[in-house]
Amino acid sequence: MSVIPTSASGAKAPDLPLAASARYRLVRKARDGERASWLLSSPLVLVLGIFLVLPILMIVVVSFWGATEFSIYPAFEFDNYQFLFGSAVTYQVFFKTFVFAAITWVFTLAIGFTVAYFLAFHVRSLTWQIALFLLCTIPFWTSNIIRMISWVPFLGRNGIANSALLQMGLIDQPLEWLLFSDFAVVLAFVHLYTLFMVVPIFNTMMRIDKSLVEAARDAGASGLQILTNVIIPLAKPGIMIGSIFVVTLVMGDFITVRFMSGSQSANVGRLISNDIALLQYPSAAATAVVLLAMVLIMIAIMLRFVDIRKEL
């Protein structure tokens, strides 16, 4: 912009109006540009504001409200939080939620990484890569609930798994812990969420230049050394994105735990859903706020390890 005044002052008198109008046009152009960027970003800002920020603020506000057995009333009191942190059940349930998340994370990572590795490095043709990848997604054409329920006839007391084991003579009594147990919960979690691990890891692996693997082989690296020195470091962002998906999904789940544990196990999601069923919204809101804070802290810790920005 500094060019304009100089040229205007250096110009002869007849040119001055021209220069001034050019300057005006430039200023207007800049203002228009600014306005355009505000307009362009406003739909997203509105959507996120109305559907994300506002509800969360609502929850935070309600978490300070008071409740009796039959009513809730606006207030600013810490009773909900006091009750929450004062109860041993809270700590147990939060601990259980973390345990579920950790175990599910380990299994989904192991399976997801293996599947992605197979797809990216062992399947040679792009056609087969795409075909097999789509095959992985087919179960996701049905709802979570259906996929969960489909485990029941398999794992039940007289289910396929038990009758097969009985017939083979490996057990005398049907295994009780197969269904309606923590085992069943973790099994369903792994089944439901492994794809969320596969997709981002596969995505980063496909971006690894295959000649890097050759270069490593040329330098004498064994298969395992290639994996630990080249592929895992370069797939880290994908691993991290997948981990965030899985951890947040498991931490926020309540239906899987209810179904697969036969209501014998609890996690934070179920705590909240119970409160809601009893119309104890302030208490549910307080638990939700604590859970949200926990999940955000976990994600913040994960992001400290890996820079995922280059993936986005």
Partner: peptide
Amino acid sequence: AMMFQNYALFPH
């Protein structure tokens, strides 16, 4: 020993 066309340096 091979030197690759796109150099294939390990980016990490």
